[in-house]
Design a protein around this nucleic acid. Structure first.
Lengths: 251, 251
DNA sequence: TATTGTAAGTTTGTCGACAATCTGATGATC
DNA sequence: GATCATCAGATTGTCGACAAACTTACAATA
């Protein structure tokens, strides 16, 4: 008899949390956004109870802060957060290549195919000058890495770190922005994996993450710094010119 | 004018979450414990609303699972979780030594003092054959490492991983248990730091974590395996012979 | 005897409401 | 004119209640 996977229906709280995460990722809820519970609950079509539960979950994930008696606010990342998040990613992601290379050949090929597809998405986005699509493909590329190179727990944890990375971008620049070099860097990642060179993969990822920190904190790599390599996009979805609020962390 | 740190009152949800974390750490709520919301809310002296919010937070932290319509259950760690958690710790903790060594001398001395104090606590506990106290000092030792070697975020994340480590112990053995070697291992950590040898510190921590995995999964290091090195303690606080339940993860 | 159908009981998931608290502004006093 | 006190408005934090859903036990049938 074939094993049936257990049914897993998402609870309302799951749904709300997922919706809020999406909103954070796609920029509908830029960092610093302050929202009232009643209003937000009405928009989502739920009552305040489940919404508050979802808020607590996202708070634990570090995406939201809950200032007392002020509803909820999307977390604004600081320079320290940027360094922090990338430091953590740099401890984990370079190792994932090694782990992927220990997978059975069939799965390994599958991973390479998926990663290749994401890189193609990135290239297409670059040709169209679509910063948003490029950033989304970037997220998915690293998610694939996490899913195959790690466990469920690791995938979840890295998933959160990746969303936080996006929050860093939104926090550091007013608009969404990615760097053109992203694409060749990721091409190199895939090439290293295809060549079964885990060592090289690790070093490339490490270098990429360090470069990302520099780009986010606007520390030029070399004196003749040029902004023309940056691809940016206004956040088109729900412009919401909401108030900003920098709080000393609500937790 | 002197900078005042902002006042931070803990919300009810914070309090409940902290109380539940404590209960998980001290074994009052062993893995697999299933609790009804109403009963638990009554015990804590709060209504179900805030309790449910705290549950969501602990779920995001990975300590609880919320099976649908069955209240809440303390997560039971699997062998994969054990490997996972220690793999993550092994990516992070060895680096903390290096970072502590870059601290200004005054702070560095303070850290060493704190770590030394924790080791002393461990030694006292060992002399009394008090496994529980030994385990608590172990947790605090590594918390000190996280606080000084990392950022707030890192401290919180590692804090969660440490509680999960405790859950691993509870999940793998029926009773609380630690290994005698823990103490000399930690003495060596402090010595390496005192000698400003970050490299050696890293390797020792790495080795410790690998050993922990072996101990937890009962993979003997050498053929003539001997259990006499293990120190165990029944969980005295609230014996609660509660039902056990192994669920396919509620999230 | 094993299995399925039924029903009662229990518990959760969700909602609405109340009260405490905070914010912001207005007015009074020095 | 500036500072402090007071007050109204709005919003959260908490609670109680209802209904839906699930579990478990029991009985009936093949």
């Amino acid at each position: 008899m074939g094993r049936l996977a257990p049914v897993r229906r998402a609870s309302t709280v799951d749904l709300i949390a997922e919706r809020l995460r999406e909103a954070v990722v796609d920029g509908s809820l830029p960092p610093g956004t302050v929202l009232g519970e009643a209003e937000l609950a009405y928009q989502l079509g739920v009552s305040r109870g489940p919404l508050r539960e979802a808020m607590q979950r996202l708070t634990a994930e570090g995406l939201l802060v809950i200032p007392r008696r002020r509803g909820l606010a999307v977390r604004t990342m600081t320079a320290e957060d940027v360094r922090d998040i990338h430091w953590l990613r740099a401890r984990i992601e370079p190792e994932l290549g090694r782990r992927i290379l220990t997978l059975p050949p069939a799965e390994r090929r599958a991973v390479l195919a998926e990663l290749g597809a994401e890189v193609k998405r990135m290239q297409r986005a670059l040709r169209k000058d679509d910063a948003r699509a490029l950033g989304d493909a970037y997220l998915d590329f690293h998610r694939v890495l996490a899913v195959w190179g790690g466990s469920l727990r690791l995938a979840r944890m890295l998933g959160t770190l990746l969303i936080e990375t996006r929050l860093c971008t939104f926090s550091m620049f007013e608009h969404f922005e990615v760097h053109r070099d992203l694409v060749p860097e990721h091409v190199a990642f895939v090439e290293a994996l295809a060549a079964e060179d885990g060592e090289r993969f690790g070093m490339l990822v490490q270098a990429h993450l360090e470069a990302e920190v520099r780009r986010l904190l606007a520390e030029p790599e070399d004196p003749k710094h040029d902004d023309s390599d940056r691809l940016h996009a206004e956040t088109p979805d729900e412009p919401q010119p909401l108030d900003r609020l920098d709080l000393p962390e609500g937790l």
